[in-house]
Design a protein around this nucleic acid. Structure first.
Length: 430
RNA sequence: GGGGAGAUACUCAAGCGGCCAACGAGGGCGGACUGUAACUCCGCUGACUACGUCUUCGCAGGUUCGAAUCCUGCUCUCCCCA
């Protein structure tokens, strides 16, 4: 049995644990669970930390259980929230659960014959049949309101004067989540719950229930909330959340997110989000310090995580796309791409169409940037960009007098426009 | 209820009869540099049929050759006294 706690410690993934947890885990194979909120039909990289907790857990020889919060998702966790949550209906939740399940399969081994194969459960399955009366009689009786009120998640909501208060529903959340732990303890020998450090309060309600009702002992491990060194929120890019689903965040953008992490964060993240061992990571860090501009850390981090989430084929494509967009690729390189690759690379770039006649006549730059396409918000904006020497056609800088004609078409129907280095626009001809 | 201050572009904030599409700062965007970074430097940042024209300074009227600037009314915000 590999020492899970030690593993978490050097990776910087241990925030807090209940006394005795380490010994408990070293004795024999144990089952632990982490809950996931099915609030969307995809997980995002913020969920990656608890996922990695489970994945490392399984690699240490223990049995990970992923709990999809169908029931708890209907209530809404008040932790860290300043206002009442919106509730989702059952159909949406069911759909989301299916999607989340598929994504977790990339990280956890659900199908092996080993004793520690991962298991997926949905708390809706056991919560749905419990009546309100049963619950308050059999479970509620054992926990005092005083105890519940002492939790930070509750205190913060009822004490802050600006808030609208807290509904009974949300107040009950910790009981429902705590009951999950009790249920898993009694039915699946689950003795450990893990989660982000904001979940500590909810988890201890669970261990309390296990002590009082289950006559047993439950353990808890929390991991730190992931931060970014510049203070912005982890897992957000300009486009919003960075999702694990390629339909929401393309593999290319996903890779780019990791590649763009700061040096300081990359050191932290590579420990958390990859399975690389300590020795490998240390030598990578050393290598990075010698030549920071090579960004070996960021590249390796991006490689590992993208491979894990999207697979090797998608990773290779992301690299290819990155080279075209940021490497020294020329107009000729662009024109040599076949249509499918070209579209893959520029997936998600704003597009507009112009007619073949426009091209035949020769399309002026104002028309291409604004008048006919609305890529930029006004003709003035387009003129400004041209004056700033910011506009490129097929990666070559052009001025206001440039006219797009048939010779500029890629794959006979596309023209790649750029304003500055980072904003691309794709013009296609019909 | 009484008294006072104010509302200006994405934000903060000057301007107080013509020289105002409106100082300055922040932000945003672009250029040089660079590691697809940080720092630094430079430029741009109302629109258009663009060396000119048009619409903007809480809203609606008015005075004037001419108003963001003066007058009247309205709406909203803040402060002080009761």
């Amino acid at each position: 049995m590999k020492n899970f706690i030690e593993e978490l410690q050097w990776r910087g993934m241990l925030h807090d644990s209940m006394p005795g947890t380490e010994e408990h885990l070293l004795e024999e194979m144990r089952s632990a669970y982490v809950g996931f909120d099915p609030t969307a039909d995809s997980l995002h990289i913020g969920n990656l930390v608890p996922i990695m907790l489970l994945a490392h857990y399984q690699r240490c020889g223990h049995r990970p259980i992923a709990l999809v919060g169908g029931a708890t998702g209907m209530i809404g966790d008040p932790s860290g929230k300043s206002s009442e949550r919106n509730l989702l209906d059952e159909t949406t939740l069911r759909h989301n659960q299916e999607c989340v399940k598929a994504q977790l399969g990339h990280f956890l081994d659900f199908s092996s014959d080993e004793q520690n194969a991962a298991i997926l459960v949905n708390n809706y399955d056991w919560m749905k049949n419990i009546s309100f009366l049963e619950f308050i009689r059999d479970v509620g009786k054992h926990i005092t309101v005083n105890y519940m009120m002492s939790k930070d998640s509750v205190k913060n909501r009822i004490s802050s004067e600006s808030s609208e208060g807290m509904s009974f529903t949300e107040f009950t959340y910790q009981m429902v989540q705590g009951y999950d732990f009790l249920h898993l303890f009694q039915n699946m020998e689950t003795t450990l719950q893990m989660g982000g450090s904001d979940q500590w309060g909810n988890i201890t309600t669970g261990t309390e229930l296990i002590r009082r009702i289950g006559n047993g002992k439950g353990y808890a491990i929390t991991c730190p909330l992931i931060t970014k060194s510049d203070g912005s929120k982890f897992g957000k890019s300009e486009g919003g959340n960075v999702w694990l689903d390629a339909k929401r965040t393309s593999a290319y953008k996903f890779y780019q997110y990791w590649l763009n992490t700061s040096d300081e964060d990359a050191e932290k993240y590579i420990k958390i989000f990859t399975f690389l061992d300590q020795e490998t990571i240390n030598s990578l860090i050393e290598e990075h310090k010698v030549a920071p501009h090579e960004r070996v850390l960021q590249k390796r981090l991006g490689e590992e995580v993208t491979n894990l989430v999207h697979g090797n084929e998608e990773y290779e494509k992301a690299i290819a796309a990155s080279n075209i967009l940021f490497g020294n690729s020329t107009s000729d390189d662009l024109k040599s791409l076949d249509e499918q690759t070209f579209l893959d690379v520029f997936d998600g770039v704003p597009q507009a169409t112009v007619t073949a006649a426009d091209i035949a006549e020769g399309l002026d730059m104002i028309g291409a940037l604004a008048a006919k396409t609305n890529f930029l918000k006004s003709n003035s904006d387009a003129r400004r960009a041209l004056n700033e020497n910011a506009v490129s056609v097929n990666k070559e800088k052009v001025d206001e007098n440039f006219v797009i004609t048939a010779k500029d078409l890629i794959a006979d129907k596309y023209v790649l426009l750029q304003r500055g280095k980072k904003s691309y626009f794709l013009l296609s001809v019909e």
